[in-house]
């Protein structure tokens, strides 16, 4: 009985950590620009695909990872420079459509540059399941969770302990005031895209041994990541993590105890329910409307 519950929780933890990593990327860009980047899932896809294609071509894993991260960050910066920056003063909806266009473009690019098949990576530390009180967990799941924790700590340090991080945070609170204080808002925007591309790439790489990847892998991860970020409260990194875990664990418990056909629906019902009572998500700031 307990082993069963524990197994469901492990399953939820694995998917939840994946969603959380995806959600974090949304949170960072939202913080700096109040833009929801619907191409975030494509960053994840590019990270995973680039690494597995390079490994297949014979590169050692660490080098492939490093190169893939750099490639993804370049894509992120290019997206900001050539698509977001010129439209900086447009409506939020306009910018959303630009990022949707970018996600379609990047998927199209990936299927031309690479292919349409599924690819995998070897698990970082073997495939021997770890047995805990009758339930099993794959070592790669621990990697995913561990990397998520590491990322959160690093982000906290960056935003609270470095000058540039503080500048980014200041920009998210009040762009004009930040600008008047001499903060380069353009630079902040660019760094936020580079950072979330980095996050996406890292996420894509650690989850590929579990979920595999192909040129369309970013769609689902992007959708779940967006859900996690909104559930947690937009712009709140911790919220995105909690949101991701809630979605993942709700899905696992729902398929274990209710119906696997309706597990995704259960996750969305929970999100709707939370938003009815907490219209700014679990940890969101309460916004005040200006007249």
């Amino acid at each position: 009985m307990f082993a069963e519950l524990l197994q469901y929780l492990f399953a939820g933890l694995t998917s939840g950590a994946i969603y959380a990593l995806a959600g974090l990327g949304f949170a960072i860009i939202y913080n700096a620009s109040h833009v929801i980047n619907f191409a975030q899932g494509e960053f994840i896809m590019i990270g995973g695909m680039a690494t597995s294609m390079m490994v297949a071509a014979g590169l050692p894993l660490p080098l492939a990872i490093a190169l893939a991260v750099v490639v993804t960050m370049m894509v992120g910066v290019a997206l900001e420079k050539f698509a977001i920056e010129p439209a900086r003063n447009s409506d939020v909806v306009t910018i959303i459509i630009i990022t949707i266009g970018a996600s379609i473009f990047l998927r199209g690019l990936a299927q031309v540059v690479w292919d349409k098949e599924f690819h995998s990576l070897p698990a970082f530390s073997g495939e021997t399941p770890i047995n805990v009180a009758g339930a099993t967990l794959m070592p790669q799941s621990i990697w995913v969770v561990g990397i998520s924790v590491l990322v959160i700590v690093a982000l906290w340090w960056f935003f609270n302990r470095t000058l540039f991080g503080k500048a980014m945070l200041a920009t998210s609170f009040n762009r004009l005031a930040a600008q008047l204080m001499g903060i380069g808002v353009k630079k902040v925007l660019m760094v936020s895209f580079a950072l979330s591309a980095l996050l996406g790439a890292v996420g894509g790489i650690v989850v590929t041994p579990i979920t595999f990847t192909n040129y369309e892998a970013g769609i689902m991860l992007g959708l779940k990541g967006f859900s996690a970020a909104v559930l947690g409260g937009l712009g709140n990194g911790l919220g995105a993590i909690v949101g991701g875990l809630v979605v993942g664990i709700a899905e696992a418990l729902a398929s274990g105890y209710l119906s696997s056909a309706y597990k995704d629906a259960v996750a969305f019902v929970i999100i709707l329910f939370v938003l009815f009572f907490l219209p700014n998500g679990l940890f969101g700031k309460k916004g005040t409307d200006r007249v």
Partner: peptide, 21 residues
């Protein structure tokens, strides 16, 4: 053919960048 998604995404982005309204 294979470039359809790229062209479609590019058109969407371009139109929104140059004609934001």
């Amino acid at each position: 053919e294979d470039y359809e998604a790229m062209v479609l995404g590019g058109i969407m982005m371009g139109m929104m960048i140059f004609l934001p309204k």
